[in-house]
């Protein structure tokens, strides 16, 4: 299903848990943007994502307003999940039905009335770029690991939903090649907002929103000043994930598992 052209999503300020107004003027999100959201537990990260997901209009607990192309979006866009330009994937998002991967994708393709039959295979191929644990069309959805499930749901959001805006709530944990996910989302020109505790992911974004006490405390725009650190921690991250894979494979880690930067 085609969405009407969305050029900008604008988030207008609300208030903190203590009632004080947020200090930013507006946060604009365009295709290809990557924004990360960081902050301690309970600081309002998920509430921020939820505001976008429901297109808040001053009627959520935060009092924020979210506009599409500078205006209040039409009801239909907000209410019908098939017309919503947003895909939200959280750690809890699952396929509950006892279907195979292929049947699950078929169900979604059918619901969207997409005639293109190659879409299912394309989704599985893309999902396999996101995870090292191979996903096959014949596997049952309920037997997929957390990493496989999230990889498939992100691939589904890109290829089947074609949602221009993707919200990810702490999806990085375990079994997912996060850098592949980010580069694929970038390649597909998605606007992405992700809540994360992962240093690599946080540094991969162009802007970083810092939350505190229910409010946006600041918006950091590193403009390249973190590139060197990003290179270093990406290296460390690769070392760690390599070790993780070796431990999972049953090895004894007697050497250092590769150069530590």
């Amino acid at each position: 299903m085609e969405h009407f052209a969305i050029t900008t999503i604008t988030i207008l300020p609300g208030r903190a848990k203590d009632g004080r107004s947020e200090s930013f003027k507006e946060i604009a999100l365009r295709a290809g943007d990557m924004i990360s959201i960081v902050g301690p537990t309970g600081s309002g990260k998920t509430a921020f994502i939820n505001d976008i997901e429901v297109f808040a209009s001053g009627d959520t607990v935060t009092g924020r307003t979210v506009l599409v192309n500078g205006e209040v979006p039409p009801d239909e866009m907000v209410r019908d999940p098939a017309k919503k330009p947003i895909a939200l994937i959280t750690q809890n998002t699952k396929c509950l039905a006892d279907l195979t991967v292929l049947e699950f994708l078929e169900m979604h393709v059918k619901a969207r009335r997409i005639a293109d039959n190659s879409r299912m295979a394309e989704t599985i191929r893309l999902a396999n770029e996101f995870t090292g644990e191979k996903i096959a069309g014949t596997m049952r959805m309920t037997s997929l690991s957390g990493g496989q499930t999230r990889s498939l749901l992100i691939a589904d959001a890109i290829t089947v939903s074609s949602a221009p805006i993707i919200l990810l709530d702490e999806v990085e944990s375990g079994g997912i090649f996060k850098e592949n996910v980010i580069s694929s989302l970038k390649k597909n020109n998605k606007a992405v907002i992700f809540v994360t505790h992962d240093p690599v992911l946080a540094l991969l974004s162009d802007r970083r929103i810092v939350m505190r006490n229910g409010a946006v405390e600041k918006i950091l725009e590193p403009n390249g000043c973190e590139t060197k650190i990003l290179g270093q921690i990406s290296g460390m991250d690769r070392v760690l994930s390599d070790m993780r894979e070796r431990i999972r494979a049953g090895e004894l880690l007697t050497d250092n598992g590769g150069p530590v930067p």
């Binding site: 098939a82 809890n92 509950l96």
Partner: peptide, 12 residues
């Protein structure tokens, strides 16, 4: 919030 996008659409 607990279910996949596909199921959300089919449920509706």
């Amino acid at each position: 919030d607990l279910i996949s996008q596909a199921e959300k659409e089919v449920f509706r």
